[in-house]
């Protein structure tokens, strides 16, 4: 059994479990599935700075921080005890492209040639961590939600603005992966 769990899981299992998060959160406490709000709550908690957008009772939303804290713990458990020792299987066509950028290590979930501490003070690190992270935080809040809040919760409840947002997430992602990322690799 443990052997099966250690293998990478099939997309349908992952999709099923992620989809079931929607009714689970609704039924255990009337909570709407959404992750990016946690960033807003943390801002409201730590640096509200009299900004109206952060003046609300974040304590009422503390469940959301427990939820994301749980995600961190779950990831830790999975990486420590259910670890898959083999290389991650990546599509050959993607590998071919990444080889050209000097990404040759497929042993971890993240490419260690980019996502390592030694890169923090390099321009490449700045582009991938600081610039990329900023866009994630700014963009999700501007859009009013992320993949969970819009694409999963929003689409599940048939909200057309969430469909618009999801389509725009994808457009942004396609543009970024095919135009911006190759450009970053060319620069640094």
């Amino acid at each position: 059994m443990l052997e099966i769990i250690r293998q990478p899981w099939h997309w349908s299992i992952a999709g099923l479990l992620i989809g079931l998060t929607v009714p689970t959160l609704l039924l255990i406490g009337n909570k709407k599935f959404g992750v990016s709000s946690s960033l807003r709550h943390l801002c409201a908690m730590c640096v509200p700075a009299n900004i109206p957008f952060f003046q609300y009772e974040w304590k009422k939303e503390i469940w959301n921080l427990f939820f994301v804290g749980g995600m961190l713990i779950g990831a830790l458990i999975a990486s420590k005890f259910l670890h898959n020792p083999s290389n991650i299987v990546v599509a050959e066509s993607t590998k071919t492209v990444l080889y050209q950028y000097g990404i040759t290590d497929f042993s971890k979930l993240m490419p260690t040639q980019i996502f390592n501490v030694a890169n923090i003070f390099t321009l490449k690190g700045f582009a991938f961590f600081v610039f990329g992270g900023f866009l994630v935080g700014f963009g999700t809040r501007y859009a009013g939600g992320c993949t969970s809040g819009h694409s999963i919760m929003g689409l599940s409840t048939l909200q057309w603005p969430s469909l618009v947002a999801t389509i725009c997430f994808m457009i942004g992602g396609f543009f970024s992966a095919n135009i911006i990322i190759p450009f970053i690799f060319k620069l640094f």
Binding site: F131, L135, G139, T140, A143, C146, F169, G172, S176
Partner: peptide, 14 residues
Amino acid sequence: QIYGALIFGIGWAI
């Protein structure tokens, strides 16, 4: 939901 989503999409891929 358009502007923000486009910006997030770019960050998502990076």
